[in-house]
């Protein structure tokens, strides 16, 4: 489903974030990307999600090379992904409901369909009662769950989570991991970038390790 070949990324200023990374992730698989800070995990996630462009090499999603897509086609590709960020990236001037509704509004769904699906997503993460709240009034764990609700509301085929438990206490972190596991069980391909060993233990998922931008055997 996801295939990278000799993928490299050099940022302006000369920092080499990724060096010749080649990997393959199957459909319905759950994978952990590990490595220390600065290992290139976030960069790899951005390149897979089509948020950034690689310097060399290629990323293919279901056989389609991202570099072969033109600018106007990329947004439609991104709709196949659900993104979860460590810093949540929530809109603080909108309610919880409207944060989750954003991907559906972008996809052009009707108001009634948006309402139904947003309520279902909020219910799944346990925030149904807080739809009218402002995100800043939520706890860290709730904000992360809100971010997950927004990521899954569009029923994506691939879930990309970048340090999703980074700022959470162990209890909340375990909840989040359970949630990802549940999504994976229903067929969603899940890629989680983390440097937290506790998160990986006991899940039996494949682990891909990055070190200074290079894939470790």
């Amino acid at each position: 489903m996801i295939e990278t070949k000799d993928l490299s990324k050099r940022y302006p200023g000369g920092h080499q974030a990724l060096k010749n990374v080649s990997l393959s992730i199957q459909e319905g698989e759950m994978v952990f990307l590990t490595g220390h800070s600065g290992a290139g995990k976030s960069t790899l996630m951005k390149l897979i999600g089509g948020i950034e462009r690689s310097t060399s090499g290629s990323v293919a999603i279901n056989g389609t090379k991202l570099s072969s897509l033109n600018r106007s086609a990329l947004p439609y590709l991104r709709r196949n992904f659900g993104f979860v960020f460590q810093d949540h990236k929530l809109l603080i001037d909108r309610s919880v409901f409207h944060n989750v509704a954003l991907p559906l509004l972008i996809s052009g769904l009707s108001k009634s369909e948006i309402t139904t699906r947003v309520r279902a997503a909020l219910d799944k993460v346990g925030l149904l009662e807080k739809g009218s709240f402002n995100p800043v009034t939520l706890s860290g764990g709730e904000q992360q769950r809100l971010c997950i609700a927004r990521a899954v509301v569009n029923k994506p085929a691939i879930l990309l989570a970048d340090e999703p438990t980074g700022n959470l206490d162990p209890g909340y972190a375990a909840d989040i991991v359970t949630m990802f596991r549940a999504f994976n069980r229903v067929g969603v391909t899940v890629v989680i970038a983390t440097h937290d060993p506790a998160m990986i233990q006991g899940l039996g998922a494949r682990i891909i390790e990055l070190k200074q931008g290079e894939l470790q055997a």
Binding site: I51, P75, Y76, K89, L91, I106, N154
Partner: peptide
């Protein structure tokens, strides 16, 4: 700026 970035990540077109 943040809203634009988030919208772009979740698949907003230039027109949107």
């Amino acid at each position: 700026k943040d809203e634009i970035e988030i919208a772009r990540i979740v698949g907003a077109t230039g027109r949107f």
